[in-house]
Amino acid sequence: MQRQKHDKTAMSQQLYIFAPHWGSAHLSREAFIDRVKEAGFDGIEMSLPMDVEEREAWCRAIEDAGLLLIAQQWETVFHADFETHKQALAEYLLNACAAQPLLINTHTGKDFYSFAQNSELLDLCDRISLETGVPIVHEIHRSRFSGHPMLLLPYLQQRPALALNADLSHWCCACESLLEDQSQMLSQVFPHVQHIHARVGHSQGPQVNDFRAPEHAHALAQHLAWWDRIVALRRAAGAKQITMTPEFGPTPYTPTLPYTNQVVSDAWELNVAMMHLLRARYAE
């Protein structure tokens, strides 16, 4: 189908905040899109169905609602064998590119693949992006090629144009800290960031139970300082838009009480609250 083209000039230096579909898969398409619109998000970030008709139905509904789309690819996490992983990565990315999203956020590679293997996957992503015209960013995420700062830096040294999605909560968990001693490393990473997952992590996990709670004030302040630097770099580079997705997730990301498995906070409500914080802080 002919996808509506967004006016890039109208997007200049705009802030766009996306709602994660993660955690809302139990809702119908119509109910989820209504929820996103009512909350005030600018778009949706989601993994698109591989079934063509279902994918097109989602794309039409998102476009008809006046929302933007960021496509995700995370499903290759289930493919450990390298050749199977590579084939699946190509299939998922091409399916996402067919929707002509604003960009694709991909979970690329494995932390146990060799540098050469992960580089082969990055080359594949570059080719698909070039052929389709759809920007692809690689998410900083545990167990992927970017799962730890020292894993990622060699790729950045070899690939000055490597585009990242900063979900720094994963590195807090992987490094068991708020990265207080890694400012030089972050200075090398931040210029590569083209998208942000705005979730607040801590030294023992990728998600605090409620970022507004006073006991998490230090963690929130640290994440905001990182996002401030990234946004400033994006604006200084003349970025067409600043994109962010609050991404507090369902269980087991959201902690639960023992025995009852009752969640201690509402991930959707946290994402809406983070959207308002981001808009107040970064909208021009």
Score class of each variant (00 low, 15 high):
Gln72Trp: 05
Lys86Phe: 10
Gly66Met: 08
Glu75Gln: 05
Ala88Thr: 13
Ala80His: 11
Pro101Arg: 09
Gly109Trp: 01
Glu91Ile: 06
Arg60Glu: 12
Leu94Ser: 09
Leu69Asn: 01
Glu91Phe: 04
Ala71Thr: 02
Leu94Val: 11
Trp74Pro: 02
Asn105His: 03
Leu94Gln: 15
Gln72Arg: 08
Asp111Gln: 11
Ile62Met: 05
Ala57Thr: 14
Gly109Ser: 03
Ala99Val: 14
His79Leu: 05
Gln117Asp: 13
Ala61Glu: 02
His107Val: 13
Glu91Met: 08
Ala90His: 09
Arg60Asn: 08
Lys110Cys: 09
Glu83Tyr: 06
Leu89Met: 15
Asp81Phe: 03
Gly66Arg: 15
Thr84Ala: 09
Glu91Leu: 08
Glu56Asp: 12
Phe82Thr: 10
Glu75Ile: 02
Ser119Thr: 13
Gln73Arg: 03
Arg60Ser: 15
Gln87Gly: 12
Asp81Arg: 02
Gln100Glu: 10
Gln100Cys: 07
Asp123Ala: 11
Lys110Gly: 08
Gln100Tyr: 02
Gly66Gln: 10
Asp111Trp: 12
His107Ala: 06
Leu93Pro: 00
Ala116Trp: 03
Asp64Gly: 04
His85Pro: 04
Glu63Gln: 11
Lys86Thr: 15
Ser119Arg: 05
Asp81Trp: 01
Ser114Met: 13
Cys97Asp: 03
Leu89Arg: 00
Ala57Tyr: 07
Leu67Ile: 10
Leu102Phe: 01
Asp64Glu: 09
Ala116Arg: 13
Ala61Cys: 07
Tyr92Phe: 14
Asn95Gly: 05
Ala80Arg: 13
Lys110Leu: 10
Ala88His: 11
Ser119Pro: 05
Asp111Met: 10
His85Ile: 05
Ile70Asn: 01
Ser114Gln: 07
Asp64Leu: 13
Ala88Arg: 14
Asn95Asp: 06
Thr106Ala: 02
His107Tyr: 05
Thr106Ile: 04
Gln100Leu: 07
Glu120Ala: 14
Asp64Met: 11
Glu63Arg: 15
Ala80Asn: 10
His79Glu: 09
Glu83His: 11
Cys59Gln: 01
Ala116Ile: 15
Thr76His: 02
Gly109Asn: 01
Leu89Lys: 00
Ile70Gly: 02
Glu63Cys: 11
Asn105Ala: 06
Glu120Asp: 13
Leu67Tyr: 04
Trp74Tyr: 05
Asn105Arg: 03
Ala90Leu: 09
Leu69Glu: 00
